[in-house]
Design a protein around this nucleic acid. Structure first.
Lengths: 216, 216, 216, 216
DNA sequence: AATGAATGAGGATTCATTCAT
DNA sequence: CATGAATGAATCCTCATTCAT
């Protein structure tokens, strides 16, 4: 009865653990991952998962909201720490790729309204756009960002690039995304600085690596 | 005797009909779409669907293989009909977005090996890379394509861009992808022609359209 | 139009072919065997099978009726060709084991009334009992058959012995049945002739053969 | 506090309940009985059945393994409680008929390897043969069992006799099996004691009872 | 009359969610 | 408050039967 109140932080700990686990599970197993699998890998019982998130949509919503906060934090940190707005923009776009947001791919149809149409998500998106807007405006002022590229374009590009290439071996997929990010950034640049020439990724190399990594 | 032939139950016709329907259904409803729904929208019984594709993986594989053929045809047509390789490349990248390949994004985990690891798919990928390689090489020769952008990069970019943005209203998602394609193409250009200034997509506009289209 | 009437016997040929195939398929694959499998192994289309037997019960009924006729023929032949009634009885019991009637095991519950309750089957059973009755009576008169063993007992024993031991390797199952038949016949004998001593089938031998034949 | 304990949801209890129910259902309705029917008659949901037995084969395997244990217990009890080995043997053979093992007869083809080829079953069979071997040896020593009848013969005979005669009314089928067991035991006897004369089961009586019980 | 593709009702199985312990 | 067994609606898939060719 007179519990000394020591396991009070546990619930919050569990909540975060479940969200982190769910993001990984959805990223790796795709949208077909089951609630039981999430609970099992999080090391909790199914009942505990459902205590925190009353249904599947609720869990997905939490993962999305959490990801949105991470993106906001990423943008804020980039804006604060980078001297040049272009570098902040570049850092943000590159950073988003590390969020394991492949979950986005599992959201479709009517589910979108249920999990991504809440006030919390909408408000988060507004906050993210606000921060990005500051970066984009500053980048325009710097003359580094093409004037016909707006904040909305940045969001669109990020939305496309954060997701992986699940049909490819993980390492190859990550590198292709890395390179695609560079191409997009180059396309956004007002007067692209003559980027130091790199090696192109040839078809032969792609095929070679595809086969090589499939072996491992 | 001279039956007007109105009920021709053609198995091959059915097979193609099912694949086309499945691509649309998966693109619209996500990977959670039921087999019965695919069958219903294709106008056939569940048994017919399963006669052609013994299980769900088999159907997904067929959709992927069919999509690969479409991409190959798209690349070949672009190469043959465009005078400049750069235009062919641009046409290919833009064209892929119209293939409704959102299905690609729902394949993950062990399923990848089952549906995208067959000889048929591997051989198709090789053929696609061959055609693309010719276009990329010619674009290099034209001096239009950055020398550090290879065929593999094109494939990676296409893989990322063909997919939709399911969390956004369809029309908005399509436009964002359109614009992202233009950015990528700009980034690939060796000496980007001074593109006629357009309007940037601002955060305000993005938010406005997001809300507006969600209403409809 | 003026068909010379040459493929008239084909239908009857097909009918017998299907019955024979069905008996084998049910004996080997158990009651779970599908109609398609029967049709395939019989080398006909599903439509042909259904032309002869409008539904599954109809096919099973035909197999049972056919088997009954075979048993009757077996009993008549034994009665006519054997000098001693005991030998005829013995021959009949042994012979039934070769009819592959494992199908009987798949008939249960309400299905029994549908497939084994027809006038044709009932009439066939009466005819079989008549023939057996003659043999049994004669065997009683010979003094070879225990007086407390009647025709009904013979039928019961046959019903139990005609079926195989599906959980054992085929050859071992057949031999066990062979030996069981001998034991039953010995038990029926009024004053059992001192049967030439054989080797008993020991547990070691049973285990050895079970393992050995499972390998092949 | 001192709850009278009336709703104890015990998983182990459920497991045994399901096995018992399945044995009865398969015995009565044949192998075509549905899983839902088993669950319904066991008073549990389909999900509970599948939690305990992931598929149909798993359930059948459990029923077989359980039946094997019952046979072993039957043999051990008979050996311990009977003074004469012959009586133990007789008791075992008669007792097996009461195990409702008709399920055995529905297992065929590839299913045999899946449900009866596990180490658990194999080890159980070995244990059963060991106990039976002791009884058979002792019966040989008593001079009661024919020397050419081994443990393997006993198993074969039991395997054939435990099953019912599904095409006959239940009561008639049971009696026929009863009588067949007596015949087999008589056949196994070294010097059969002059069994008190009983009434033979005549063809007329068989037909009469067949019709009579079909009415009820 | 034969064929085999199409049908769809029904049975097997899964998994989101609930609830007794 | 955690646990994991139980639930049963929903889905996948099969196969007996029909029907267009």
């Amino acid at each position: 009865m007179r519990a000394p109140g020591q396991l009070r932080a546990d619930a919050q700990r569990n909540r975060e653990l479940i969200i982190d686990t769910a993001r990984e599970v959805f990223a790796e197993q795709g949208p077909g991952a089951t609630m039981d699998e999430v609970a099992r890998l999080a090391g909790v019982g199914a009942g505990t998962l459902y205590r925190h998130f009353p249904d599947r949509d609720s869990l997905i919503h939490a993962v999305l909201a959490d990801a949105l906060e991470r993106m906001i934090a990423l943008a804020q940190k980039a804006r604060e720490e980078e001297t040049w707005a272009w570098d902040a923009l570049s850092r943000f776009v590159r950073g988003c790729a590390g969020l394991r947001l492949d979950l986005l791919i599992s959201v479709a149809g009517a589910q979108v309204h249920r999990v991504a149409g809440t006030p919390e998500i909408n408000e988060g998106r507004v906050r993210l756009l606000e921060v990005l807007d500051q970066i984009v405006s500053a980048a325009h002022d710097e003359g580094a960002l093409r004037t016909d590229v707006g904040t909305g374009d940045v969001m669109g590009v990020v939305g496309l690039l954060v997701r992986g290439l699940p049909t490819l071996p993980a390492a190859l997929g990550d590198e292709l995304r890395e390179r695609a990010v560079r191409l997009v950034l180059a396309g956004m640049r007002a007067h692209p600085a003559p980027s130091p020439p790199e090696q192109p990724l040839t078809a032969e190399e792609l095929t070679r690596r595809f086969s090589a990594e499939r072996e491992s």
